[in-house]
Design a protein around this nucleic acid. Sequence first.
DNA 1: CATTCTTGTCGAAGCGCTTCGCGGAAGCGC
DNA 2: GCGCTTCCGCGAAGCGCTTCGACAAGAATG
Lengths: 338, 338
Amino acid sequence: MQDVADLAHVSLSTVSYTLTGKRPVSAATRARVEQAMAQLDFRRDPVARALASRRTHVLALAYPVYGVSLGATLNEIVQGAVEAAREAEYELVLWPVSSSEPEVLRELAAGRTADGVLLMEVALDDPRIEAVESQGLACALIGRSADPADRVWVDIDFEESLEVAVDHLAGQGHTHIAFVNRSQADLDAGYGPSVRALRAYEESMAQRGLTPVSTPCDVNPGAGRRATTALLAEHPELTAVIVMNELALFGVASALREAGRSVPRDMSVVGIAISGEISDMYDHPLTYLAAPGPDQGRRAVHGLLEVLGGRPAPAGVNLPCSLQVRETSGPVTRLTTP
Amino acid sequence: MQDVADLAHVSLSTVSYTLTGKRPVSAATRARVEQAMAQLDFRRDPVARALASRRTHVLALAYPVYGVSLGATLNEIVQGAVEAAREAEYELVLWPVSSSEPEVLRELAAGRTADGVLLMEVALDDPRIEAVESQGLACALIGRSADPADRVWVDIDFEESLEVAVDHLAGQGHTHIAFVNRSQADLDAGYGPSVRALRAYEESMAQRGLTPVSTPCDVNPGAGRRATTALLAEHPELTAVIVMNELALFGVASALREAGRSVPRDMSVVGIAISGEISDMYDHPLTYLAAPGPDQGRRAVHGLLEVLGGRPAPAGVNLPCSLQVRETSGPVTRLTTP
DNA sequence: CATTCTTGTCGAAGCGCTTCGCGGAAGCGC
DNA sequence: GCGCTTCCGCGAAGCGCTTCGACAAGAATG
């Protein structure tokens, strides 16, 4: 940095000020400094900068490496977050921690190698929040906690999503619509998405005078197949199924095939809160409600930056999923005998 | 740190030396210092430490966030790496970068916020290697490059794995064994695992005078189903299939079910280089060659630390997969008519 | 007993930046 | 022409550590 200053015939502090913009620098000086920096291929040292300014310009995202979700949906969020961070000249790193080991997260936060932390897959009562905040770091939630007041959070509007899905199917004449949720364990743990989606599904059905039929389902194709097979056996009158479970979707497909139900002639399938990438992997082009993945990541980062900037903490948002009508949903064409 | 020194009646540098161990400190002094640290709940600042010592004590793992692999297998590697790093008092962070954007990686490396970088899913000619090394950072490869000489790498022994798989099946009387590989795109890109596994499969078959039958297959259940269906149509004499494709496995299962082939009575299935978690998700307990995931991560970290420590760069290793015989493989029970 | 090591500790000089206080040079009104 | 403010730039003091040279003791050596 001193070299740059010398070359531009200014003092070292002036170079710093042109870089940080924290004090005015005349256009002429700025030009000379920038020229010198380019000439010397100067890049300021993030470590020294962090030490002097007490800001690392790093945002950490607690990345759940334990557990078997399909990367795609998680990674869309990461991608959005990375982009948003990059635009704000922040660096985003992933901290590999399981949600069940808040102490590890606490240690990481104590090191203060990041200015703020993004938490994904937040449970209703998530110990990680306290772990981060106890170290004085800002934190933003992707998915929301039990008491989201006064905190930055970004979540999916499950209420609306299920309403839209049910509406789409009901509008096509379906009256027997099932819902395949995430695992029973999630439900028991009070994991937001499972709980809220189930409730929303039941309400949407009730409003139309329809009887809800739902089942929890582990996140894997085999479980999806078994759950669907069981559902069909018990409720042969079903003509549509809503699935909020990435991996189970594939099992649903095979169960339907085995049951001799063709899609969408005999049976409509709608995915909830999944990424486009998953839908592309499906047998037929899948009708689904696209998760606002990248946008979630982006907004969470923005929220976090607001907090870091000392601005009033913005409230949380529920982002809508957008309905993508493809080829797995259609009007009822075969009358079922209940 | 000065507070600790005062409380222990020693100088600041002595505190530092008891922490780093770079100079001898008498047992008595050490005890006093440690007591003082405990009393004050002192934790040294990683940022200041990094600035002064030019060592961040951080290892970065380039984490491929684009692309749809199933988290499980990737994450086993991460877990192993995290543990190994933690044991060595290093911190492991994930840098979210796609393998197709080496410039991003170069920028990250230029910031020198990590001492070394782990690269996963290395292609035969991977531009990321140069991107990292050009910035003077050490790097270790998980999967190996075209010219792995003089570099730290950890890979899976595909040669042995396929030999073991073929041997296991041939030993049970199978003579018509197919191989479902990863995508054609991987094969074209010269992605090590696909290429080496295919070659190894063909050699193992040839050695026994058997005719190899293989197919590339995109990494998703639908593709797996189609590939298997096609395989069975063209080679009805098949009685076994080896699958090196996590997601396709599930499609293989449905295709077999649809073709009326029961497993393992009519057909044996063996997974290659997959994690236990995936196998658990399979319909029946799957016979598979377990990827040495955690061990790969662990060894890569150790290798990287050796290099950082200035020790002679250890050569690479091919780690074996261990055969886990479960219920999807068994002797031929029905004679096929070719 | 003088000399050379060894061992344990200290003070001070950085690491590469940010930031604070200060002051010179314009620009302004009267 | 005088004080006044405003605009820019400078020097220096850190940020919280590591590390180097120096230096007392005591141990080992001849």
